[in-house]
């Protein structure tokens, strides 16, 4: 999280310098008085005012330098580094989500293409099946027609043969009848009489 320094910092500088100057002066005065009172007995060093002025002076310098270095160099730089990192991470995450969305789209497109191809294949198979069935039907019909024609022909042949045969039988019958009549009566009937008699017998049954 980046942090910005404020306008108050400038007032803070004045405050710091002023208060330190006052303290240094006060400490120096205290040191003078202390030296005036006694000098021989070494006091506890942290409470010895002789060093207060020097300590304050150098603390002011070092702390001011530290504050300046931190507020002007280190902290803005670290803030920008962290901001940049947060941005980079955010950008990478965005990119990743984008990529993922793209991958999902592609997967969907693939699925769609696959389904379409499957449907097409089914259609083609159906069509092939239908044409095959039609072709075989046609062939069957042709064969059946051929066979029917052949059968009709055969039946016709049979019929003619039968009529011819029947004709022969009648002729033979009339011949035989004429011969029988001749043998019985000794008188040959005419051909027309014989055939009429045969016809009569045939119709009688």
């Amino acid at each position: 999280m980046p942090v910005r320094s404020s306008g108050f910092a400038r007032q803070g500088w004045l405050l710091a310098v002023g208060s330190f100057a006052t303290l240094v002066a006060g400490a120096a005065q205290a040191a003078e008085q202390k030296h005036g009172l006694s000098g021989e007995k070494a006091s506890f060093p942290p409470f010895d005012p002789a060093h207060f002025a020097s300590n304050l002076f150098w603390l002011a310098i070092t702390f001011a330098a530290l504050y300046w270095l931190m507020s002007k160099v280190a902290l803005p730089r670290l803030g920008s580094i962290m901001e940049e990192r947060a941005e980079t991470i955010g950008r990478d995450l965005d990119q990743a989500t984008e990529m993922q969305a793209k991958a999902e789209d592609m997967a969907q497109a693939y699925e769609k293409a696959l389904a379409e191809a499957r449907k097409n294949a089914q259609g083609i198979a159906q069509a092939a099946r239908e044409t095959g069935a039609k072709a075989s039907d046609a062939q069957r019909h042709a064969t059946e027609a051929e066979l029917a024609a052949k059968m009709a022909q055969a039946e016709a042949t049979i019929a003619t043969t039968k009529t011819k045969a029947m004709g022969n039988v009648r002729d033979l019958g009339s011949d035989i009848a004429a011969a029988i009549v001749t043998k019985l009566t000794g008188q040959a009937p005419s051909a027309s009489e014989a055939s009429a008699a045969v016809d009569q017998a045939l119709t009688r049954g």
């Binding site: 002066a25 002025a53 020097s54 300590n55 150098w58 603390l59 070092t62 530290l66 280190a74």
Partner: peptide, 23 residues
């Protein structure tokens, strides 16, 4: 006014140097 650079001052400067080095 006694503003001598003492061992305290030295270590203040070292503190400053160390913190600055890290940061």
């Amino acid at each position: 006014i006694d503003l001598s650079f003492t061992n305290t001052s030295l270590w203040m400067v070292i503190v400053l140097a160390v913190v600055s080095a890290i940061m």
